[in-house]
């Protein structure tokens, strides 16, 4: 069997760097052993293999505009495979398949305001697009980032967030659901939706990009609706169980009265107007 014949054969890759970001999240910098760039779009994902343990779909957290050929994955320790990935160190080898799926429509977003709304680990896929817009700042109008997590210690990409806080060319706002008494926190306290009313949204000229846990979408979308943000100006990135990444295994299918999608091929990024009537989407 030729290697190019199997869509299931991973490429070998090496971990260049591991950085602990929060209690359960680490950032892995990875390079394909071929030395080639991954050539991904912001919002796409890869299947990460740990031979003997299995494969998991992980969204790519770095922008393709990043220097060098490596890419970054922010991985939460939540299951068998991610548990083992968290024990890996610099120099360890893993398998990579992809990039897969439809990412964010970067060309459509260019020339517009972009408002990012990230909840928890939802910042991981959004960061690929956030960094893209920051690296090509002149191609976008106003950039606003709303980032929320449960507690201050769960904040990811702390160094970068620190820069975002200081940046004049973006409007960065953050919130935590709760803040323990002994922790210093200058941002907002409250769920992510409490940030939305205070944000000016130029309805004719902006796109809102949302990623977070399933429960967050409902409330954020409701808030955006109150702001009269048109549905077609909202993009979402969805998480699903995936086994193949190539539209075969059936696990990531989402259905509704209107039809069906495979998240691995038609997504993970979807226009809200396209999926809003799909009962299983949100």
């Amino acid at each position: 069997m030729n290697e190019e014949d199997s869509p299931y054969l991973p490429e070998s890759a090496t971990i260049l760097n591991v950085k602990k970001m929060a209690e359960n999240e680490k950032l892995f910098e990875i390079e394909l052993d071929s030395g080639e760039a991954l050539n991904h779009d912001p919002g796409q994902f890869v299947e990460v293999s740990v031979p003997g343990v299995g494969e998991v779909p992980i969204s790519i957290s770095s922008s393709p505009t990043k220097e060098g050929n490596s890419f970054e994955l922010c991985i939460r320790e939540v299951g068998n495979v991610t548990g083992v990935i968290h024990t890996l160190e610099k120099g360890d080898e893993i398998g990579i398949r992809g990039p897969y799926g439809e990412g964010f429509p970067v060309d459509e977003l260019k020339g517009h305001d972009v408002i990012f709304i990230a909840g928890g680990l939802g910042i991981a896929p959004l960061r690929s697009l956030i960094n893209y817009t920051l690296d090509r700042r002149e191609e976008f109008e106003d950039v606003k980032i709303l980032y929320g997590c449960k507690k201050p210690c769960e904040l990811l990409y702390e160094d970068e967030v620190e820069e975002w806080r200081e940046m004049d060319e973006i409007d960065y706002r953050e919130t935590v659901d709760e803040c323990p008494d002994d922790v210093c926190w200058e941002g907002n306290v409250g769920v992510i939706t409490t940030l939305i009313p205070g944000v000016d949204i130029d309805l004719d000229n902006s796109y809102t990009v949302v990623c977070g846990p399933p429960i967050m979408y409902r409330f954020v979308l409701q808030e955006l609706k109150e702001k009269k943000v048109p549905d077609e100006r909202i993009y979402l990135s969805l998480e699903r169980r995936m086994k193949c990444g190539v539209g075969k295994c059936g696990h990531c299918q989402i259905n509704g009265k209107e039809g069906e999608f495979y998240v691995c091929q038609d997504g993970p990024v979807f226009n809200y107007d396209v999926v809003k009537d799909f009962e299983e989407a949100l």
Partner: peptide
């Protein structure tokens, strides 16, 4: 089997059919 792997001298993966 879709893939066979071996990790003795670095990660080796082969497609299988």
């Amino acid at each position: 089997t879709l893939v066979e792997y071996e990790t003795r001298e670095g990660l080796e993966m082969e497609p299988v059919n």
